[in-house]
Amino acid sequence: MNDIRTIALITGVLALLTAVTAVGQFLKRHPDRGLDPAAVRTFNLRIRGWWVLCTVLAAAFWLGTTATVVLFGLVSFWALREFITLTPTRKGDHRALFWVFFAFTPLHYLLVGLNRYDIFSVFLPVYATLFVLARVAFAGDYKRFLERTAKIQAGLVVCVYCLSFAPALLQIPIEGAGAVGRSANFRLLFFLILLVQFADCMQYVWSRMLGRRLVAGAVSSNRTWEGLVGSATSTALLAAALWWAAPPFQPWQAALAGLVVATMGFAGGMTMSAIKRDRGVKDYGTLVVGHGGVLDRIDSICFAAPVFYHITLLVTGAGL
């Protein structure tokens, strides 16, 4: 039963991806449709990003839980790299940053892999924060102290702590999933990523079609209230329609999760936009020219993962 659902979900996503790829290629070949060629190019880049995302996820799933946790750990590491690169730090932060990159980030993911929710839920927000504050103080440079430590902490929380709740979904015990519990957990993670990506697209589509009122024009010139409401509604509908794929959810619970995930994803995009605007850049990183950085791809997932994790815990009754 569970495996039929997995196959159905994968087939559905592959069919959808193939369809949008076909549309994208069609639009590229026929530039006379009166569409903005830049928008078509962005659309096609996005589709390529999804293929990459799906391939990497599929490989990680196939290799198992540990591989998936390691994969997300590496993504966190790279995103944190982009985050700290863009935020000015001073020499006095150097030692603290060294610990953040080479001790706290790997240790946190180790705890996630070991399924120690009781420790990993406080490790970064409490202990890493205290360490960073103290280490920067020990370094003897008090200039703009709070500002600097806050930057490091924000990077850790967004890029490492929040993102790690996505692979942590693999560890939630799901009742009734039995021997194939693992594939049920993977479906849960896939469900989250699917909802986040869908919400991102819907936000763009609704903003384009009906967008009138900007949420904050100075921060983002294409995120509108209409986009937010439209994306939250359509994501809730999709989630309800796919409730069978996410094991512990009833349709109404799935819809609620979709609503929250879309809203949080929107908030994540806004937050990263604000940081980028402040630093005067358009994209994080230069991993592949014209593609933006890793952080641009995962900002919505970072914000949506913790709340989705906790909703799942509530629904399964496995904690809280």
Binding site: R81, E82, I84, T85, K91, H94, R95, F98, F101, T286
Partner: peptide
């Protein structure tokens, strides 16, 4: 910023 003067442990930021 990866390896400032006087430090011996690098921090893996992005450089150009």
């Amino acid at each position: 910023r990866v390896l400032p003067r006087g430090e011996f442990l690098p921090v893996p930021l992005l450089s150009c």
